[in-house]
Simulated assay, not measured.
Amino acid sequence: MFSFFKKQENSQIQEILTDNNLYSPIQGDFLSLEKVNDPVFSEKAMGDGFAIQPTEDQLIVSPVAGEVTMVAGTKHAIGIHMANGLDILLHLGLDTVNMGGSPFNINIKVGDTVSAGQHLGIMNLEEISGAGYETTVMVIVTNMDVLETLTTNDGSYQAGEKVGTVTVKQ
C-alpha cells in the first residue's frame, strides 16, 4: 500500500521536472502582451509571456508546474519557479494591487509545489470591474536571460488548457 503512494509521488515529481508547457490560468481569450492596457506588460518590461482576458470563470489555476516562490500580500501576484529554471509571474488584473487583496481568495503559500492546472484560488471579476480595474491576467517569464524560446497560440481557453511552450538556454 505504501509503495502505491510513493509511485504516485514520484509520478508528480517527474511531471514537474519535464513539463515545459504554459497553461491558461483562467477561462478566457488569448491576448498578446503588446495588447495589454499597461505599458509595464505591453512593453515587456517585466518579461515576455501572454495574457488572458477572462470571460465568465473566476477559477485561477497554475499556468506551470513548479514551486511557489511568492504570493503578494495583496494576492494579486504569484511567483512560481519551474524545474527548468524559469521564473513565472502570474499577475491577476491591472492595478488590482490597489484593492488590498479583497477580490482574491488564494489557497497556496510560498514553498508549495504546484502542478500545472492545479487550483490556486478565486478571482472576483465583478468586484474588480466594479472598482474600475481591468481583469486581464498575465503569465510572464521574468528571468529572460534563461529563456531560449516561448511559443503561444491564439484562441479561447478553459482554465488549465495548454497555451504554449518554453525552452531554456543550455
Rank of each mutant, 00 (worst) to 15 (best):
M70R: 12
M46A: 10
G47H: 09
Q53N: 13
M46F: 15
S42P: 01
V36R: 05
I26T: 12
E15D: 06
A72F: 09
L31C: 13
G49L: 04
E67F: 01
A45M: 15
D57N: 14
K35D: 14
L31W: 00
S32Y: 09
F41S: 08
E67H: 05
L59E: 14
Y23G: 09
D57P: 00
E56V: 14
K44A: 06
Y23W: 02
E43S: 14
P63V: 12
P39M: 09
Q27I: 14
F41T: 12
A45T: 04
G47Y: 10
L33A: 03
S11G: 04
Q14T: 03
T74K: 05
G28Y: 00
L17P: 02
S42V: 10
D29S: 15
M46C: 03
E15A: 12
L22W: 04
A51L: 06
A77S: 14
A51D: 07
Q58C: 08
Q14I: 02
F41P: 02
P54L: 08
M70F: 14
Q58F: 07
D19P: 03
A51P: 08
V71I: 05
N37V: 02
S42T: 07
M70N: 10
E9D: 14
K75W: 01
L59F: 02
N10C: 04
E34W: 07
T18P: 00
E67K: 15
S11K: 13
E43G: 07
S42L: 08
Q14C: 03
D57Y: 00
G47F: 10
I26Y: 01
Q27N: 08
Q14S: 13
D48N: 14
N21A: 11
F41L: 12
H76G: 11
A51N: 11
I80A: 05
H76N: 12
Q53K: 15
K75N: 10
